[in-house]
Design a binder for these strands. Structure first.
Lengths: 347, 347
DNA sequence: GTTAGCACTCAAAAACAAAGAGTGCTAATA
DNA sequence: TATTAGCACTCTTTGTTTTTGAGTGCTAAC
């Protein structure tokens, strides 16, 4: 939706110019600059009048009297909303850079974060898909040596988990085979929530003397999923924030980078993004709008990508409010596309 | 080895006092401070004379005339060497914090880095073990569905790798069994270097019509190992460097944190550390001594831990030159011990 | 409606002025 | 001979004042 701003065309142009120059320079922009470096052919005085209006309307503000203007959050918002409505751009070539190294999901996502950080010069994050309603695709137990069994669990989307289980007495080949049969026939295609206590009891009963092994395997399954529940987040380019003076004073830099390192706070972003069901799946949080308080002086752009099976992951870009929204939105769309495509191809 | 410093006992005491107070405050320390807050009972003037000597000998220096003295790299070196010779301390309790969450190696090491960072307030890194001469312990292929086979490879030290392989036509159960037999009998206990072209050719021959599958599996093996070759590095507490003003100006902070994020430069540290064969396995690099140029204004303490099978990993602490060496060295020894122990127990 | 002109404001930069910590040296002292 | 008190000197730090310049708002002319 376009905001009901009701600004004259000229005001809009001036606002646009202010924002764009501010995006580049990071310095408050004065009336003279606009008057000179724009094709409006208006004197600085006229611009000043318009700017006074724009300020009154809340789109721009002065850091102090006798300084130029900078966009307010509201101003950015308008700008971004305008951008969002623009036609889609041609995609791709990003693909090459990514396919390159990527074969495992983990690496693919790491790479994605890196590519995005490089191409935008902001800090980026990519989350692994959350498997809320994920299904077990395959389970296999194998003996590694006399006392150790390895359990390999493949989930939907080819997410692979494995876990080593210590057992007291060796399993015969035959029994191993039986157990594998049992587990697979019972659990295959099963969604994770569906594995309840009743089912577990039944399984153990059927396993007979090996019920304890089954117990351990189920623990392993639970564990494997548990680990995945708090999904992984890959970040890149956190130090890019040093490039923007307004964020790189010790205090802010410390906090933001810390958030990136600890990742804890980023999960908030992920859940927030995933819950919000938008058409394009791209969201822009400007300043205070962000779900993560640490980043209240930043802008955060997030997008979701899909894996099928209802699995969704998140991509995020964190930068200064004066971020190059145009470029970022484009890059975001591209990456989103790439990821969607890749995962669907791999399926 | 103790350096041949040949300093008088008094000089040594003064140097010690200077370093210790500087470690705490981070400010140049003057003669008066030493005279007052030490049990030497000497006037500031006497101290000044001694300090002049110490400066001439290169153990301390003045940031500028009429400032107090700060330790030089040489001074720190002497101090650290003295510490290193001290008796071992009692270990442990760190174990609890770690065992807690740890079950997979990856998590264990992540946790280790975190614990260490918390306990020292410096930036830390832990590398996964390098498997130069690592052996294949177990290989298993399983069908996931009609077109996909999963290969699980367990290496020495229970390092698990897996990879999904796409195949054209389904394998019968029988053939799968045969392949597994073939692979295991041939490759088990084999060190990775030993898998050469000749062996590969022989394997393929024996696999007959499934030679292409074998090829893909071997690719997968190579790949799995490849991935491991450039080992993982887990870091924690990078933002701790903000706590030390002498490192936290934009320039340095940016560089150091970046090194931590990109990890590239840290591998240098790891290899350096691993190559150097010391008795205790703990090394201290002060300032310029560091293998990583980015950290020339820091001190870096590294240690190795062992996994058996000749696999070794690295632990590292990076902080200001005025780091609390005593504490750090103790923590380091503890962690080193914990890790050694854990991996050997798990074996 | 637009613009030139001017007085005014205010942050940032530059210039200047203590203040204070610490030194080196000399001369007196134990 | 080793230690110490005393003093002049040096430099950073801190605070104050001045200067500068970009940018504004307002008024009056176009």
């Amino acid at each position: 939706m376009i905001s009901e701003h009701g600004l004259s065309d000229r005001k809009l142009k001036i606002l646009h110019a202010i924002i764009q120059t501010y995006l580049e320079t990071g310095e408050p922009v004065g009336s003279r600059t606009i008057s000179k470096y724009t094709d409006l052919n208006l004197s600085s005085a006229t611009i000043r009048n318009e700017m006074a209006d724009l300020e009154e309307l809340g789109y721009i503000m002065q850091p102090h009297t006798s300084a130029g203007r900078i966009p307010s959050d509201k101003g950015y918002r308008l700008y971004v909303d305008m951008l969002m409505d623009e036609k889609e751009q041609e995609l791709s070539e990003m693909q090459e850079q990514m396919l390159d190294k990527a074969d495992k999901m983990e690496q693919l996502l790491k790479q994605a974060a890196k590519v995005l950080a490089n191409s935008t010069n902001y800090a980026t994050m990519v989350s692994t898909p959350m498997n809320n309603a994920n299904k077990i695709k395959f389970i296999q137990l194998s003996m590694v040596d006399a006392e150790q069994v390895i359990a390999v669990i493949v989930l939907g989307g080819n997410v692979i988990k494995n876990k080593i289980i210590n057992i007291e007495e060796p399993l015969s080949n035959e029994n191993l085979l039986k157990l594998n049969m049992l587990l697979n026939t019972t659990l295959n295609g099963m969604s994770i929530e569906a594995i309840n206590l009743g089912l577990i009891a039944r399984l153990k009963e059927q396993a007979g003397i090996h019920s304890q092994v089954v117990g351990k395997v189920l623990d392993a399954v639970a564990d494997a999923i548990q680990v995945d529940e708090d999904m992984q987040i890959y970040t890149s380019g956190a130090t890019n924030i040093f490039k923007y003076p307004e964020l790189s004073d010790k205090q802010s830099a410390q906090e933001i980078i810390n958030a990136f390192e600890e990742k804890q706070q980023l999960t908030e972003l992920v859940t927030q993004t995933l819950s919000q069901e938008e058409n394009t799946g791209i969201q822009v949080y400007i300043g205070d709008e962000t779900p993560v308080q640490t980043m209240k002086d930043c802008s955060v752009v997030t997008a979701t990508y899909e894996l099928g099976d209802g699995m969704k992951g998140t991509i995020g870009i964190i930068g200064p409010k004066r971020m190059d929204y145009e470029h970022v939105l484009k890059s975001m769309k591209r990456l989103q596309n790439e990821l969607d495509q890749m995962f669907h191809k791999n399926e």
